[in-house]
Structures are given as C-alpha cells and as structure tokens.
Nucleic acid binder design. Structure first.
Length: 487
RNA sequence: GGUCGGAUGGCCGAGUGGCUAGGCAGAGGUCUGCAAAACCUCGUACAGCGGUUCGAAUCCGCUUCCGACCUCCA
C-alpha cells in the first residue's frame, strides 16, 4: 500500500524511508516496564506512542510481530554494576512478599492500565525470569568471543576492549574518552577492569532470593541482557524496529547493542525509535522528583496537582496531540483543552451516521485522505493527523447543518477516513458508552420536550433540559432536531 | 563540569527558507423562545542580537534562559 513511510532513526539522527528487512513482516521490540511499582503517566506515554506505531504499521498491511518485555528480575537499584539491590527483591523484602508476588501484582496492574488506555497487547510479552537459559547462553557466547571476563562468579562486559574494534557510543554519539572522563567513582567496583564495564551475570550474594544456577555458580542476569536475549529469540539477530524511552539511549540501549554485536556481530535493529519525555512544569516526570502521578489518579482527579479527573480517552488524545519525539508538558489547562477537543471530534464522529448524501456535492474527500496518510507517513505525525480530522469534523458538522452538500461517493469515503484514522490508527473510542436502553429512553424524553416546545410550554421544556443537565446529559437543539450527549 | 536537545500567540502544540497547522481560551457575527452545540470572521506568535538571502520563525554565528543524559528512570 502506501510505501512512503519515513521514520526517524536515532542511529542516523535522520528520517529514513522505512524498508522492512523481510516485507510484509515487521519485527518490533520495545522495552517494557520493570514491574516493581505502578507505571506512571510518563511511562504510559511511551507505550501509547508505540501503540500508535504498531497500529499504523498494521493498518498499512504489515504483519507486525510486536515484542514488549516485562522485566521481573535483574534490574538493580543504582547501576553500580553488581552492588545495587534488585528492585523487585527490595520491594519484596519491604512488603514481606515473594519477589514473584511483587512481579505478578505490578504486571497485572500494568496490563490493566494498558487496557484502559486502549493500548493493544503486543504479540509476545516475554519475561526475564522466563528466559534465564537464553541469557546464560548469550553470556557464554560473549565470553567465547572475548568481550567479557569473569571475576568470582560475576561476568562483566569489557567495554574498552569492545570499543577497540567497535563504536560503543554509536547510538548515544558519545566517545569513550568523554564517557571515561565523566565516570563517577561510586566505590565497591574494584572488581571491574574498566569503570564503564557492566555486569552480564551477577553472582548472588548470601540471602539473595532470585537466583539461578549457571556455569559460574548461583546468580542472576544483568539488566541489559534480557532484551538482547529475548529480541534475539523472538525476532532474530536482526529485526526492524527497536524502541523505548529516550532515557534508555545512553545506557540500556547502548549496552544492548554492544551485547548483540559481541555475540552476533550485528546491531540488532535497523531502526532505533525513541519517545520523548512527559514533563510537568518543564521537568521530566519521574518518581524521584516526586512530580509523577498514576493513571488512576488522573482518571479520578485524586492528586493535588490535578483540578479534576480526566477520562482515559481524553488522556490518550492529549498524548497523541503531541508528536512522540517532542516533550509534552502536562497541565490542567492543556488537559481541559484536550477534553473539549476530543469531545468535539467524537461528536462529529457520532454525527457521521446521521448524514445524508446529496445528488451532487461540494466537497472532495480524497485530498483530505491523502493528507491524513501524509501526516502519518511523516514519522507518525499524529498531531497533524488530528488537525486533519478536525477539518473532517468541520465538514461533517456543515453537512449536518445543511450548509454544505456531499455526494454519496464522498460521504462513504469520509466515513471510512474517520473510522480508519480515529478508531484503527489513533486507537480512540467513544466513551459515551450509552447503555442499551439509554438511547430509547432519551428519545422518549426528547419527544416530550419537543411537544412542550411546540406548545410553547417553555417552563416544561427548560425543566427537562436543566434536569438532564444536572444528572450529566446535555440536550442540543439543532435545525434537524434534538441531539444529546453526556457531559 | 562534559555531551546532547529545546525556546512558537493567554495555554497545549504542528511546521521548518516564500503559500504564515490544529485544539482550547478570548472577541464579533449567524442560528435559536432562551441556552448549548454548530458554522463564519478576528487576534497576525515564532527568546535576544548579528549574518547569509530577493525573501528566515525556518540556514549560520554569538548571547540569555530551560531541559535531558553522564546515578535508576519510559
């Protein structure tokens, strides 16, 4: 179909034409959450962005295998190599639970949030603990190829040796000298040959709960290893897209590339895609800064920085109104703007079914449709797509008001356009989820009000309208009769 | 401190050499019993200072401010 998709590649820092390695198949790997706490809204932004990408690629007809992992072991507090405590294990000790109980709890919570935000499940959602064998095999391979060394049951990746033949900073565009010059002395790392070396496999200390037997004794895998092992297993040595948050570039993805290069002699992904951060007052949303909040708090409005709650689709719409590579600043004013805008869009989308075609028309939808494609083909530019959908909404409203005529052919094209891009590509859905009987009941009430109006009994007609308003329904008098919507 | 990125109208946000998105808020109008919605019109914004150019918000340089990464972070 449309073969003019351009994708921004972090490797080249340019937009590149998207050409899959094995069309029509597309392999995409996205770094998922570490399940030791609730995901906050900033995390959600990344998964919404990749959901958009997944949806659009699928819409274009590609057969996408989308792998998004769940990290349930190996992610340490402070990346001091082997000195930090496993995040999940730490939490488990605090709450007197099994580590796997922690992982289970937050995995379920994560999936719930994903579903509420209408984020499609990936094709495969592998866990680190489910792939210990694959990770051990990968460590063996890296050792064999001479890019790692063992110190008392812990295996380190030798960054400086790797950089002699490869470019360690290929993704982050930093050279080794600069990196070395800026390394902090964190102490407790005397085992390592170089300050940048990172652990592939870590010896379990006495009392460590999550550990597995390996050729080097009881231990557990390092954080970066799982993604290399699992992407390799499910997508092959080389696949099309590897993604994640921008903050993963300098460490996690840099080390991932080094691991794959050392083991398989190839950069795992052709296109590296990174999503930008969600900010609050210009600052990155993060747990440590204390400016993060949970999706649930946003939906209910129960957080001091929120002046009210916003529906999940409003949140999704808000996020899609910015391009994934730009920072997006969160604010109550911006949320309210999105809430109204989203309502407007969905209102027009609903009205679409009531439109009547004329024998001849004054609008051509084809150019508008092309602009929708153009927007998405330009590195998944959802804000521009949304602007075009508002243009479509204007057409819908004008036709509904009889100030514009549309013929049969263009009307059906318009219907297809709005459905495809709103529902399939943007993944938005109408939340006015009317119960089965509600439309009939509302029609009945509107009949009564119509009669009252015809009898010039405005006291009654206003009473009906105001009464409905109080319980959350808005009546709108139009030329073509009354419509209603949920407030 | 090092590396990188950004500064767009009241707010959020596209764009990136000429045709100056979009949403929200605001002003005026049409419609309406009144509202609401919808439609039409409007505000002529691109941190500052230089430079390149017929022409720059868009390219180059400098300055100021902000942020990200270098500790874990989507």
């Amino acid at each position: 179909m449309e073969q003019n998709l351009f994708v921004y590649n972090t490797l080249s820092r340019k937009k590149e034409k998207f050409v899959p390695l094995h069309p029509p198949l597309v392999g995409m790997y996205v770094c998922g959450p570490t399940v030791y706490s609730d995901v906050h809204l900033g995390n959600c932004r990344t998964y919404i962005s990749f959901d958009l990408i997944f949806r659009y690629l699928t819409y274009l007809g590609y057969k996408v295998r989308y792998v998004r992992n769940v990290t349930d072991a190996g992610h340490l507090e402070g990346d001091a190599g082997d000195e930090g405590e496993d995040k999940i294990e730490k939490k488990a000790k605090l709450e007197h639970l099994e580590p796997m109980e922690i992982a289970q709890k937050y995995t379920i919570g994560f999936r719930e949030v994903m579903q509420i935000l209408n984020i499609l499940p990936p094709s495969i959602e592998p866990t680190a603990t489910g792939h210990i064998i694959e990770q051990i095999e990968l460590v063996k391979l890296i050792l064999q190829n001479g890019y790692a060394y063992e110190v008392d049951g812990t295996i380190y990746f030798d960054v400086e040796k790797y950089n002699k033949t490869q470019d360690y900073g290929i993704l982050s565009r930093r050279n080794l000298e600069d990196l070395l010059a800026n390394t902090r002395d964190l102490g407790g790392q005397e085992e390592k040959r170089g300050p940048l070396d990172f652990a592939l496999w870590i010896k379990a200390k006495p009392g460590h709960l999550m550990k597995w037997p390996s050729p080097w004794g009881l231990g557990f895998p390092g954080w970066h290893l799982e993604c290399s092992a699992m992407s390799n297993k499910y997508l092959g040595k080389q696949f099309d897209i590897h993604g994640g948050g921008l903050d993963l570039v300098p460490t996690h993805h840099t080390n991932e590339i080094a691991q794959n290069m050392a083991a398989c002699h190839t950069n795992p992904a052709k296109y590296w895609i990174h999503t930008n951060m969600l900010t609050v007052n210009g600052q990155k949303m993060s747990k440590s800064l204390g400016n993060s909040f949970l999706p649930h708090e946003l939906f209910t409005g129960q957080n001091s920085i929120l002046n009210k709650g916003y529906s999940p689709m409003t949140v999704r719409f808000f996020i899609l109104q910015a391009h994934y590579r730009s920072t997006l600043d969160f604010g109550n004013e911006a949320m309210q703007a999105s809430e109204k805008g989203f309502k407007r869009l969905m209102n027009a989308f609903t009205l679409l079914d009531k439109l009547e075609a004329s024998a001849s028309g004054e609008v051509e939808i084809a150019p508008l449709l092309q602009r929708c494609y153009d927007a998405m083909n330009d590195d998944f530019n959802s804000p521009v797509l949304i602007a075009e959908l508002f243009e479509a909404s204007r057409i819908v409203n004008s036709v509904y008001d009889k100030s514009l005529r549309i013929d049969e052919k263009n009307l059906s094209l318009l219907k297809q356009l709005m459905h495809d891009f709103i529902v399939d590509v943007l993944g938005l859905k109408n939340e006015q989820a009317a119960g089965d009987d509600l439309p009939n009941v509302m029609n009945m009430i509107m009949e009564l009000r119509k009669d009252a109006k015809q009898n010039r009994d405005y006291a009654t007609s206003d009473k009906i309208r105001e009464g409905l308003q109080k319980i959350g329904f808005q009546l709108n008098d139009g030329k073509e009769g009354m419509t209603w919507s949920k407030l």
